[in-house]
Amino acid sequence: MNLHYYGYFQLLALALAAINYRYLRLWKLGVMLPLMIFTCAIEIIATNIHLFGMTTNWPIYNLYVLVSPVMYFILFWNMLLLNKNGRNIYLAITAISMLFAFYDYFFIEGLFDSYSMVFSMVQHIILSFMILSQLSMEEVSENSILSEPYFWIASGILLFSVVTVVTLGLQPYILKKGIKLFSQNFYRAVMPMVNVVLYSCYSYAFYLCRKHRQRFLPS
């Protein structure tokens, strides 16, 4: 069984999420464990398609594009402090984006739903900014923002999404032009690096959840 180098960072994040699950729940980040399990499963299957009798890994990644946004929306829902109107708008946008993802899969692209992914990443950028601004405006926090798990999760998602939007948004053009970086497909050259950043941020955030548990627990 093969694994890309960034796969080890995903597994590390999964291990830390499992070990610190109790503390993750205290921080309302419980959804990170199923998300990490799902991500790692997708990555392992997609990297070893021959073991599962498949010829291409597009369907696997399409499954990720369809399912992971739900988990991310739960994650952002838990992290954001929204009022009633905000919650309604959030739910409406979530519903529209899910409908678009399904419509894209069944009627527009099908092979690899890059439009859905780009749309989802744009939302992630906006939501990450909202979380970061929420953190910056918090009056009650006595700790540095660097010790906030939400900061690391939002920062990781922001950096990942910014790169992914450009890379995936230009993917058809890049493929058409045959643009390569380090002698390989541009997407394959760039995405592992941002994956490392994303899952390193997650791992550190999970560690911080445990470290700052005293905020919620008496001992």
């Binding site: 970061l132 953190l135 910056s136 540095s144 923002i145 660097l146 920062s155 922001l158 950096l159 910014v162 790169v163 450009v166 890379t167 230009l170 053009y173 890049i174 032009k177 643009i179 390569k180 970086l181 541009f186 760039v190």
Partner: peptide, 29 residues
Amino acid sequence: EVLTIIVAVIFILVAISVFLLVMLIYFNN
């Protein structure tokens, strides 16, 4: 040339994001 433009765009966007994060840390501190 296209590769250079794409890498530059990505670099600029990442730099803006990092700059915003650094500013956020600075103002928070």
